[in-house]
């Protein structure tokens, strides 16, 4: 049977959407509360890793296709770099060129919010891909590995 039992599959389906929304909340409010791009990206990746553990690889890749994850991975890094270079128009690298906004509201941190979003895209998709790639390696017995080394 593919994946784990019906119980685990159903409960995972129920909580996955909540986890993704929670991760987005951690990312978007990263400048007002502890959290930020890295932590929120890890939480979003955890939702898809949970789907992969419960259902198997095919279902997780149907929710977030491998190609889309690759594109998000690369474009997150690119967006980080572009936002950094926008500062050069005002003087130097990473200079804040956005407005500051009112205190303690969502748009109050200049360029930290877009940087958080870029980091979240990068970290979330690449962590998911790393987990998928590491899980694809076949588990072999240590004896076979040692014999292969010695021969």
């Amino acid at each position: 049977m593919k994946g784990m039992t019906i119980i685990v599959k159903t409960i995972t389906d129920f909580v996955a959407a909540f986890i993704v929304v929670f991760g987005a909340y951690i990312v978007l409010y990263g400048h007002l509360t502890p959290g930020g791009g890295f932590a929120g990206g890890v939480i979003i990746a955890c939702a898809f890793i949970l789907l992969m553990l419960a259902h198997g690889r095919e279902v997780a890749f149907a929710r977030l296709p491998e190609r889309a994850a690759h594109i998000m991975d690369s474009s997150g890094a690119l967006a980080f770099l572009i936002i950094g270079w926008l500062g050069v128009t005002g003087g130097f690298f990473f200079l804040n060129v956005f407005g500051r906004g009112d205190m303690f509201r969502l748009l109050s941190s200049g360029m930290i919010l877009p940087l958080n979003i870029a980091i979240a895209f990068k970290v979330g998709s690449s962590l998911f891909l790393v987990f998928a790639a590491l899980a694809m390696f076949r588990r072999r017995s240590f004896r076979a590995m040692i014999e292969e080394e010695l021969s």
Partner: peptide, 13 residues
């Protein structure tokens, strides 16, 4: 709610 849903599931697994 999250703990009440996931903890029995984890122990079953």
């Amino acid at each position: 709610v999250f703990v009440l849903w996931t903890s029995p599931t984890g122990s079953h697994a």
